[in-house]
Design a protein around this nucleic acid. Structure first.
Lengths: 142, 142
DNA sequence: ATAGTTGTAACCGTATTAGTTACAACTATG
DNA sequence: CATAGTTGTAACTAATACGGTTACAACTAT
C-alpha cells in the first residue's frame, strides 16, 4: 500500500506557484508541464487545495496564488487537503467476533496504539513547512 | 487512502494463536471465526506471516504457533510481513520536469523529508510488541 | 466577440482488496 | 490402507481507487 502521488504533486504545485509568482501566470497547463501530468489532474488537486483554503485560483484568466505564507503551510495541511478521507490510515477488519476473548477485545487492544502511530506521522508531517522547502530552491534572478 | 485490514487481521490472528495455544487447534477455520472472515483470507495471511518467519503452521493437521516469543514480535514485523511491498509509503509522481527549477529539485527537496516521516511511523510500530497486547487479555483459566 | 482559462462530469485502463470456489498435497487416525 | 480434516494456492468476482483523458459550460481580460 502506498499513499497516492497527490501529496507530492500538490506540494510540487504549491512550490511552483510560489516560485513563479509574479513571474509567469501559473495556469494549470503551466503547472502540469512542471509536474509532468495532465492539466485536469492539476485542476483537480487545485480544487482540493482551494477547498482547504491553501490557495486562490483566478478563474477565467488563470493563475494560482498561495492563500497563506509558505511558513504557515505544512505537509500535513497538504496531506489533509488531498489525501485524507477516513479518520484513520489503518483500516480495521469489520467483523471481529465479539464472543471471542480476543475478537471481543481487539479494538480495545489496538485502537489507541494505531491512533498513536497516526498522530506521530501527522506530527512529523506538520513539522515540514512549505517555506523550508521553498528556501532550498535557488532563485535565478533577484 | 488507507492501509489494508491485513495488519489488524494479522495481529488478531497472532494474538488468537497465542491465546489459544495448547487449548484448541488454531486452524484457519477457527481463526477465521474469531477474525470474522473467510478461512482462505486467514490462510493467505498465514502464508505471509510464515514467510516472514513469525509463525509455523502444521500442514495437514492444522494449527498455528508463534515462531518467536510475543515480546520479539512487533507491529512493524507484522506490517512488513503483510503490507509492505514498496520502499516508501509515499508514492512520488513519476515524471517531474527536470528542466524546471522546481521539477528538477522536487526529489531532492522531498525524498529525505518523506523518508523521515516513514521512519518515524516504523519506529512507532516497532515499539508496539505483541506481548504488550497479549498481556491485556485476561486468561480465563490458569 | 474572442481567445484562453477554470471547474467538473464522464469515461477508461490498471491495480488492489476482501471474498469465494475449487482442488491437489499433506497428515493423523481408525 | 482408506478416510476425514487441513493447508497451500490458483482462479475468479465485485468493489474501490487511481492517474489519465476528452469534453464542455462558465468565466474573464482584451
Amino acid at each position: 500500500m502506498q499513499f497516492s502521488a497527490r501529496l507530492t504533486m500538490a506540494t510540487h504545485i504549491l512550490l511552483a506557484a510560489d516560485y513563479f509568482s509574479g513571474e509567469v501566470r501559473t495556469t494549470s497547463e503551466f503547472l502540469a508541464g512542471s509536474v509532468g501530468t495532465n492539466p485536469v489532474i492539476v485542476r483537480r488537486i487545485l480544487g482540493q487545495l482551494r477547498n482547504a483554503g491553501l490557495i486562490t485560483v483566478e478563474q477565467g484568466i488563470g493563475g494560482v496564488s498561495l492563500a497563506k505564507d509558505p511558513s504557515e503551510i505544512s505537509l500535513l495541511d497538504i496531506y489533509n487537503a488531498v489525501e485524507k478521507k477516513e479518520e484513520t490510515i489503518f483500516h480495521f477488519h469489520e467483523n471481529p467476533n465479539g464472543a471471542c476473548p480476543v475478537g471481543g477485545r481487539i479494538h480495545e487492544l489496538l485502537d489507541d496504539e494505531l491512533e498513536r502511530v497516526t498522530k506521530c506521522m501527522e506530527k512529523e508531517l506538520s513539522d515540514i513547512k512549505l517555506s523550508a522547502l521553498a528556501d532550498k530552491i535557488p532563485k535565478g534572478k533577484e
